[in-house]
Amino acid sequence: MSQTLCIISTQAPYRGQFAKEALDAALVSATYDIPTSLLLMGDGVYQILDGQSPEQLGRKNLSSMFQSLELYGIETVYVDGESLEERNLDPEQLLPLYTLLEGDAVASFLAQHDKVLSF
């Protein structure tokens, strides 16, 4: 039985390469058949705000990377509910590919994983 990995991504989408390189790690982890969860917390929740158009920045749209996660076997993205509330974000403003973790759920969710890789 392979060890389970949780990847936590806490940075805003176009701040350097933080978010993109965290997603790369999640995709590669899944291709190595490691049971992988991706958890967005803090400013990381902005990564799945719908309607991103970073073309004027000359950057790749992260949304399409998120939408491809499922093809690699990552069926959902976990989102810290408190981080959404702190940022006045409504669930409808997000790409519909996530599972909300509310209250104490984050702590028990992390406890379920063998290893945690933060970004």
């Binding site: 806490t10 917390m41 803090g42 400013d43 810290d80 408190e82 981080s83 984050v106 702590a107 028990s108 992390l110 406890a111």
Partner: peptide, 12 residues
Amino acid sequence: GQPLELCLRALN
């Protein structure tokens, strides 16, 4: 700031 706050809600 953010790192400490996020840690607080992840503790068992």
